[in-house]
Nucleic acid binder design. Structure first.
Lengths: 215, 215
DNA sequence: TAAGTTGTATACTGGATAGTATACAGGGGC
DNA sequence: GCCCCTGTATACTATCCAGTATACAACTTA
């Protein structure tokens, strides 16, 4: 569940004979990511199938072949949207790695990060885009990422039961409930909403941790 | 939030001069619903955009014009799938109307019914189909139904806070969390799953009612 | 300044598919 | 037996759109 952002490391400047080439590669990557971001926004707004590659190109003030210069096909665009969003969620687990807090506290930290990710531009893609629009190979890769996230949440719940910070429950179903509540944010959250992601996360945590029944 | 199933009432037989006509209307309705059910299944399996009307026709051993004889266009098919699913959820509220139980108990009953609805054939349509595939007029009608459901849940939470069966919380966000957890079932539930809808509902309720923190 | 590489555009192809024009078959009522 | 209504099919149109062939422009390097 490591953050997968593998980036070109900027070498010490003015030394490599390949510097210009590297600069090009960086520019290329910037543009590629711009396409992916524009796609994520458009898909969220209009849906994957209601957004043509021509639409995407128009949003970026270029033409279709330019898009295809950076990404092989429409499926790859969707895949990258998926992946970028899921990577954001995965990174929620990075910062609690090695922590010795009670598992419930670690879970709370993950919930806050997760909520931030889901309210990002890529939230829609993680949650609403459909596997069926990807080829079996790509779909399997996405499902592997989703499965890792699920395992991470379940693991924290199991740890919590073990260390006594979480009361005994079915980890699988509890993880589904928690993930479902968070993923659903992508359906109703608007960036102009009154609540910040952190406020949403705190209220969710209050509900899930304390429960509905008065103590 | 009344159940909207308006049905032809079978008149006392053998009397009306229009009986054959009525029989025809009934047959027509049966076939129309068969189309909608087949569509719901196909959409869940392959997605709306990956299912052509020809595909649908083939599933029913007829041809495309037959489909169009019962439904105006593909959008109407999707709309009816939406509506059928949402009606099922709406009916979850019917049986607690007039109940004098504490609101938390009424909410629990709704959660059980809701879970049954979401695991039905139409679960996918309620949750995963996209408004953007409907015209603005139809989309507004669907959103009105969704909004009624949301109001129903929030109302029960507010009632619970008032009658003391639910501890004070933000009703809006709590309703979103609960609905999100349930709606998400449509993403992971398979009919061959090990847990029945009622078992899922009970575990959800245990999580939401008692909370994660040990008492 | 010449040669190669990268980025962008114009203009096209091919395939999928929503929706329709039209014909026809069968049953109920006269 | 004739007519009309309902249901179904064949065969078509029109449109959208993913992806490509090709040309050209601009920059890199020498």
């Amino acid at each position: 569940m490591a953050s997968r952002a593998v980036r070109l490391k900027p070498e010490s400047p003015g030394q490599s004979p390949w510097k210009p080439t590297e600069e090009r590669a960086r520019q290329r990557e910037i543009k590629r990511e711009a396409v992916i971001l524009a796609a994520a926004r458009a898909f969220r707004q209009r849906g994957y199938h209601n957004t043509s590659v021509d639409d995407l190109a128009a949003l970026l003030n270029v033409t279709k072949p330019t898009i295809y210069h950076y990404l092989q096909n429409k499926e790859e665009i969707l895949f990258e949207c998926f992946r970028t969003g899921l990577d954001q969620i995965m990174s929620a687990f990075d910062e609690i790695r090695g922590s010795d807090q009670p598992a419930l506290d670690r879970l709370s930290a993950v919930v806050r990060k997760y909520t931030q990710a889901i309210t990002s531009e890529f939230g829609w893609c993680m949650v609403r885009a459909e596997d069926q629009d990807l080829s079996p190979v790509m779909s399997r890769r996405i499902n592997a990422l989703k499965s890792q996230i699920d395992k991470g949440i379940r693991g924290l719940i199991k740890d919590g039961i073990a260390d006594g910070s979480i009361s005994p429950c079915d980890p699988k179903i509890t993880a589904f409930a928690l993930a479902g509540a968070m993923n659903w944010i992508a359906h109703w959250h608007r960036t102009d909403a009154e609540l910040t992601p952190d406020q949403i996360a705190d209220r969710f945590l209050s509900t899930f941790v304390s429960g509905l029944r008065p103590r």
